[in-house]
Protein backbone atom coordinates (compact mmCIF):
# COMPACT_ATOMS: atom_id res chain seq x y z
CA UNK A 1 0.00 0.00 0.00
CA UNK A 2 2.71 2.42 1.04
CA UNK A 3 4.60 1.73 -2.17
CA UNK A 4 1.58 2.58 -4.31
CA UNK A 5 0.96 5.85 -2.52
CA UNK A 6 4.65 6.57 -2.78
CA UNK A 7 4.59 6.10 -6.53
CA UNK A 8 1.37 8.10 -6.96
CA UNK A 9 2.80 10.98 -4.93
CA UNK A 10 6.10 10.98 -6.81
CA UNK A 11 4.37 10.96 -10.19
CA UNK A 12 1.82 13.57 -9.16
CA UNK A 13 4.53 16.04 -8.22
CA UNK A 14 6.43 15.26 -11.41
CA UNK A 15 3.37 15.76 -13.62
CA UNK A 16 2.65 19.14 -12.08
CA UNK A 17 6.28 20.22 -12.35
CA UNK A 18 6.43 19.22 -16.03
CA UNK A 19 3.08 20.95 -16.55
CA UNK A 20 4.79 24.23 -15.70
CA UNK A 21 7.11 23.72 -18.68
CA UNK A 22 4.20 22.76 -20.91
CA UNK A 23 2.29 25.82 -19.73
CA UNK A 24 5.07 28.10 -20.94
CA UNK A 25 5.18 26.29 -24.27
CA UNK A 26 1.38 26.57 -24.45
CA UNK A 27 1.53 30.33 -23.84
CA UNK A 28 3.93 30.76 -26.77
CA UNK A 29 1.86 28.49 -29.03
CA UNK A 30 -1.45 30.20 -28.26
CA UNK A 31 0.01 33.66 -28.80
CA UNK A 32 1.57 32.51 -32.05
CA UNK A 33 -1.67 30.90 -33.27
CA UNK A 34 -3.67 34.00 -32.53
CA UNK A 35 -1.06 36.16 -34.26
CA UNK A 36 -1.09 34.07 -37.44
CA UNK A 37 -3.73 36.24 -39.09
CA UNK A 38 -1.65 39.36 -38.73
CA UNK A 39 1.65 37.61 -39.45
CA UNK A 40 0.29 36.27 -42.72
CA UNK A 41 -1.34 39.53 -43.68
CA UNK A 42 1.47 41.95 -42.84
CA UNK A 43 4.51 39.71 -42.74
CA UNK A 44 7.66 41.46 -41.68
CA UNK A 45 6.14 44.87 -42.43
CA UNK A 46 4.32 44.64 -39.10
CA UNK A 47 7.53 45.53 -37.31
CA UNK A 48 8.72 48.22 -39.70
CA UNK A 49 5.41 49.94 -40.47
CA UNK A 50 4.82 53.05 -38.40
CA UNK A 51 1.14 53.57 -39.15
CA UNK A 52 -1.37 52.19 -36.64
CA UNK A 53 -4.88 52.98 -37.85
CA UNK A 54 -7.52 50.50 -36.66
CA UNK A 55 -10.25 52.20 -38.70
CA UNK A 56 -8.26 51.57 -41.90
CA UNK A 57 -7.22 48.06 -40.85
CA UNK A 58 -3.61 49.17 -40.94
CA UNK A 59 -1.42 47.95 -38.12
CA UNK A 60 2.25 48.77 -37.73
CA UNK A 61 4.03 47.98 -34.50
CA UNK A 62 6.97 50.32 -34.91
CA UNK A 63 5.63 53.18 -32.75
CA UNK A 64 4.85 50.78 -29.91
CA UNK A 65 8.22 49.03 -30.16
CA UNK A 66 9.98 52.38 -30.40
CA UNK A 67 8.06 53.63 -27.36
CA UNK A 68 8.86 50.53 -25.34
CA UNK A 69 12.55 50.76 -26.14
CA UNK A 70 12.82 54.53 -25.61
CA UNK A 71 10.85 54.65 -22.34
CA UNK A 72 12.85 51.73 -20.96
CA UNK A 73 16.08 53.38 -22.09
CA UNK A 74 15.12 56.65 -20.35
CA UNK A 75 14.17 54.76 -17.21
CA UNK A 76 17.48 52.92 -17.20
CA UNK A 77 19.57 56.09 -17.70
CA UNK A 78 17.85 57.68 -14.73
CA UNK A 79 17.61 54.65 -12.47
CA UNK A 80 21.07 53.09 -12.90
CA UNK A 81 23.12 55.90 -11.30
CA UNK A 82 20.57 56.32 -8.53
CA UNK A 83 20.47 52.58 -7.88
CA UNK A 84 24.27 52.40 -7.73
CA UNK A 85 24.28 55.36 -5.35
CA UNK A 86 21.66 53.79 -3.10
CA UNK A 87 23.45 50.41 -3.21
CA UNK A 88 26.84 51.94 -2.34
CA UNK A 89 25.17 53.90 0.42
CA UNK A 90 23.49 50.81 1.84
CA UNK A 91 26.40 48.42 1.57
CA UNK A 92 29.39 50.67 2.29
CA UNK A 93 28.47 54.04 3.74
CA UNK A 94 25.38 53.85 5.93
CA UNK A 95 26.00 53.35 9.64
CA UNK A 96 24.86 49.95 10.92
CA UNK A 97 21.85 51.53 12.59
CA UNK A 98 20.52 52.88 9.28
CA UNK A 99 21.40 49.94 7.04
CA UNK A 100 18.64 47.63 8.06
CA UNK A 101 15.66 50.03 8.31
CA UNK A 102 16.51 51.84 5.07
CA UNK A 103 17.27 48.54 3.33
CA UNK A 104 14.01 46.98 4.46
CA UNK A 105 11.94 50.02 3.49
CA UNK A 106 13.48 49.94 0.01
CA UNK A 107 12.58 46.28 -0.30
CA UNK A 108 9.05 46.98 0.89
CA UNK A 109 8.72 49.76 -1.69
CA UNK A 110 9.67 47.23 -4.34
CA UNK A 111 6.57 45.29 -3.29
CA UNK A 112 4.15 48.20 -3.84
CA UNK A 113 2.05 47.44 -6.93
CA UNK A 114 3.07 49.32 -10.05
CA UNK A 115 -0.47 50.65 -10.54
CA UNK A 116 0.16 52.88 -7.50
CA UNK A 117 3.29 54.32 -9.07
CA UNK A 118 1.23 55.02 -12.17
CA UNK A 119 -1.50 56.73 -10.17
CA UNK A 120 1.04 58.87 -8.32
CA UNK A 121 2.58 59.73 -11.67
CA UNK A 122 -0.76 60.85 -13.10
CA UNK A 123 -1.84 63.01 -10.18
CA UNK A 124 1.47 64.40 -8.89
CA UNK A 125 4.13 64.08 -11.54
CA UNK A 126 2.21 64.98 -14.70
CA UNK A 127 1.42 68.49 -13.34
CA UNK A 128 5.10 69.03 -12.50
CA UNK A 129 6.20 68.11 -16.02
CA UNK A 130 3.39 70.26 -17.44
CA UNK A 131 4.45 73.28 -15.40
CA UNK A 132 8.14 72.78 -16.06
CA UNK A 133 8.13 72.04 -19.79
CA UNK A 134 4.68 73.02 -21.04
CA UNK A 135 2.55 70.69 -23.10
CA UNK A 136 0.00 68.39 -21.48
CA UNK A 137 2.42 66.63 -19.18
CA UNK A 138 1.41 63.21 -20.49
CA UNK A 139 4.51 62.24 -22.41
CA UNK A 140 7.33 59.88 -23.13
CA UNK A 141 9.51 61.74 -20.63
CA UNK A 142 6.95 61.39 -17.83
CA UNK A 143 6.62 57.68 -18.58
CA UNK A 144 10.40 57.22 -18.49
CA UNK A 145 10.72 59.00 -15.16
CA UNK A 146 7.80 57.18 -13.49
CA UNK A 147 9.18 53.90 -14.81
CA UNK A 148 12.63 54.69 -13.42
CA UNK A 149 11.18 55.39 -9.98
CA UNK A 150 9.20 52.17 -10.13
CA UNK A 151 12.22 49.98 -10.91
CA UNK A 152 14.57 51.86 -8.57
CA UNK A 153 13.80 49.93 -5.35
CA UNK A 154 14.11 46.55 -7.07
CA UNK A 155 17.32 47.54 -8.79
CA UNK A 156 18.88 49.07 -5.67
CA UNK A 157 18.01 46.06 -3.52
CA UNK A 158 19.45 43.54 -5.98
CA UNK A 159 22.57 45.65 -6.64
CA UNK A 160 23.14 45.94 -2.91
CA UNK A 161 22.79 42.16 -2.55
CA UNK A 162 25.36 41.69 -5.31
CA UNK A 163 27.77 44.14 -3.64
CA UNK A 164 27.28 42.42 -0.30
CA UNK A 165 28.60 39.15 -1.74
CA UNK A 166 32.12 40.64 -1.71
CA UNK A 167 34.01 38.82 1.05
CA UNK A 168 34.90 41.12 3.93
CA UNK A 169 38.44 39.82 3.95
CA UNK A 170 39.06 41.25 0.47
CA UNK A 171 37.77 44.64 1.51
CA UNK A 172 39.73 44.60 4.75
CA UNK A 173 42.93 43.78 2.89
CA UNK A 174 42.39 46.80 0.65
CA UNK A 175 41.67 49.06 3.62
CA UNK A 176 44.82 47.73 5.30
CA UNK A 177 46.80 48.89 2.27
CA UNK A 178 45.51 52.39 2.92
CA UNK A 179 42.65 52.43 0.39
CA UNK A 180 39.88 54.97 0.81
CA UNK A 181 36.26 53.82 0.71
CA UNK A 182 36.02 54.79 -2.94
CA UNK A 183 39.23 52.89 -3.74
CA UNK A 184 37.76 49.80 -2.12
CA UNK A 185 34.45 50.23 -3.95
CA UNK A 186 35.94 50.79 -7.38
CA UNK A 187 38.84 48.34 -7.15
CA UNK A 188 37.40 45.57 -4.99
CA UNK A 189 33.60 45.61 -4.63
CA UNK A 190 32.62 46.57 -8.18
CA UNK A 191 35.07 44.22 -9.95
CA UNK A 192 34.09 41.38 -7.62
CA UNK A 193 30.35 41.92 -7.96
CA UNK A 194 30.40 43.07 -11.59
CA UNK A 195 28.50 40.14 -13.07
CA UNK A 196 25.85 40.36 -10.37
CA UNK A 197 25.44 44.10 -10.74
CA UNK A 198 25.13 43.99 -14.54
CA UNK A 199 22.80 41.03 -14.24
CA UNK A 200 20.51 42.89 -11.88
CA UNK A 201 20.42 45.89 -14.21
CA UNK A 202 19.43 43.71 -17.13
CA UNK A 203 16.83 41.96 -15.01
CA UNK A 204 15.39 45.35 -14.09
CA UNK A 205 15.45 46.24 -17.79
CA UNK A 206 13.47 43.09 -18.56
CA UNK A 207 10.88 44.08 -15.98
CA UNK A 208 10.70 47.67 -17.15
CA UNK A 209 10.07 46.80 -20.77
CA UNK A 210 7.04 44.68 -19.87
CA UNK A 211 5.69 47.04 -17.26
CA UNK A 212 2.16 48.12 -17.99
CA UNK A 213 0.46 49.99 -15.20
CA UNK A 214 3.22 52.41 -14.19
CA UNK A 215 3.28 53.85 -17.72
CA UNK A 216 -0.31 53.41 -18.96
CA UNK A 217 -1.48 56.35 -16.85
CA UNK A 218 1.09 58.81 -18.12
CA UNK A 219 1.98 57.86 -21.69
CA UNK A 220 -1.16 58.73 -23.62
CA UNK A 221 -1.30 55.83 -26.12
CA UNK A 222 -0.56 57.89 -29.21
CA UNK A 223 0.85 55.84 -32.09
CA UNK A 224 3.35 58.34 -33.38
CA UNK A 225 7.10 58.19 -33.52
CA UNK A 226 8.47 61.45 -32.23
CA UNK A 227 11.90 62.46 -31.07
CA UNK A 228 10.29 65.10 -28.87
CA UNK A 229 10.19 63.53 -25.42
CA UNK A 230 7.37 65.86 -24.37
CA UNK A 231 4.92 64.35 -26.85
CA UNK A 232 2.51 61.63 -25.76
CA UNK A 233 3.55 58.23 -27.07
CA UNK A 234 2.77 54.56 -26.67
CA UNK A 235 4.50 51.29 -25.89
CA UNK A 236 3.57 47.66 -26.41
CA UNK A 237 2.01 47.13 -22.97
CA UNK A 238 0.26 50.51 -23.09
CA UNK A 239 -1.29 49.65 -26.46
CA UNK A 240 -2.43 46.28 -25.15
CA UNK A 241 -3.93 47.73 -21.98
CA UNK A 242 -5.81 50.44 -23.87
CA UNK A 243 -6.98 48.61 -26.95
CA UNK A 244 -7.46 44.95 -26.12
CA UNK A 245 -11.06 45.38 -25.05
CA UNK A 246 -11.78 47.63 -28.02
CA UNK A 247 -10.55 45.41 -30.81
CA UNK A 248 -13.51 44.73 -33.09
CA UNK A 249 -12.04 42.93 -36.09
CA UNK A 250 -10.05 39.72 -36.44
CA UNK A 251 -7.06 41.51 -37.86
CA UNK A 252 -7.08 44.02 -35.01
CA UNK A 253 -7.13 41.18 -32.46
CA UNK A 254 -4.47 39.31 -34.25
CA UNK A 255 -2.24 42.37 -34.39
CA UNK A 256 -2.61 42.85 -30.64
CA UNK A 257 -1.70 39.20 -30.09
CA UNK A 258 1.34 39.66 -32.28
CA UNK A 259 2.32 42.63 -30.13
CA UNK A 260 2.00 40.43 -27.02
CA UNK A 261 4.13 37.77 -28.67
CA UNK A 262 6.81 40.31 -29.59
CA UNK A 263 6.80 41.63 -26.03
CA UNK A 264 7.05 38.13 -24.56
CA UNK A 265 9.93 37.20 -26.85
CA UNK A 266 11.80 40.45 -26.08
CA UNK A 267 11.45 40.12 -22.33
CA UNK A 268 12.16 36.38 -22.34
CA UNK A 269 15.39 37.09 -24.20
CA UNK A 270 16.46 39.92 -21.91
CA UNK A 271 15.65 38.03 -18.72
CA UNK A 272 17.42 34.91 -19.98
CA UNK A 273 20.56 36.90 -20.75
CA UNK A 274 20.49 38.38 -17.25
CA UNK A 275 19.82 35.06 -15.56
CA UNK A 276 22.03 32.74 -17.52
CA UNK A 277 24.92 34.91 -18.57
CA UNK A 278 25.41 37.22 -15.61
CA UNK A 279 23.64 35.76 -12.61
CA UNK A 280 24.52 32.11 -13.04
CA UNK A 281 27.66 32.22 -10.94
CA UNK A 282 26.66 34.80 -8.38
CA UNK A 283 23.11 33.63 -7.67
CA UNK A 284 22.09 36.96 -6.23
CA UNK A 285 18.74 37.44 -7.84
CA UNK A 286 16.87 34.92 -5.77
Amino acid sequence: MGIIIDRVFANLTKIIAVAVLLLVAWIFTVLLQHSMNSIEYFGFDFITESKWAPNLEKFGALPAIYGSVLSTFLAMILAVPLAIGVAIFLSEIAPAKLKSPVGVSIELLAAIPSVIYGMWGLFYFVPIIRDAFGGIGISMLTAGIVLSIMILPFMAAVTRDAMNTTPDILKESAYALGGTKWDVIKDIVIPYAKAGIIGSFILALGRAIGETMAVTFVMGNVHKISTDLLQPATSIPVTLANEFTEADTDLYYSSLFELSLILLVISFTIISIAKFYFLRRTKVAS
Binding site: A17, V18, V20, L21, V24, I27, V30, L31, Q33, H34, L203, G206, R207, I209, G210, E211, T212, P237, L240, A241, F244, L256, F257, S260, L263, L264, S267, F268, I271, S272, K275, F276, A285, S286
Partner: peptide, 25 residues
Protein backbone atom coordinates in the same frame (compact mmCIF):
# COMPACT_ATOMS: atom_id res chain seq x y z
CA UNK B 1 14.53 19.92 -12.67
CA UNK B 2 17.12 22.55 -13.60
CA UNK B 3 15.19 23.43 -16.77
CA UNK B 4 11.98 23.84 -14.79
CA UNK B 5 13.82 26.08 -12.31
CA UNK B 6 15.24 28.27 -15.09
CA UNK B 7 11.92 28.61 -16.89
CA UNK B 8 10.10 29.48 -13.66
CA UNK B 9 12.72 32.10 -12.87
CA UNK B 10 12.09 33.69 -16.25
CA UNK B 11 8.31 33.41 -15.84
CA UNK B 12 8.54 35.31 -12.55
CA UNK B 13 9.78 38.40 -14.39
CA UNK B 14 7.76 37.94 -17.60
CA UNK B 15 5.30 40.74 -18.44
CA UNK B 16 2.01 40.03 -16.70
CA UNK B 17 -0.06 41.68 -19.42
CA UNK B 18 1.00 38.91 -21.79
CA UNK B 19 -0.45 36.36 -19.37
CA UNK B 20 -3.66 38.37 -19.59
CA UNK B 21 -3.63 38.07 -23.38
CA UNK B 22 -3.02 34.32 -23.11
CA UNK B 23 -5.90 33.80 -20.71
CA UNK B 24 -8.10 35.94 -22.92
CA UNK B 25 -7.37 33.54 -25.77
Amino acid sequence: AETIRDISDIMMSAPSIVIGAFVYA
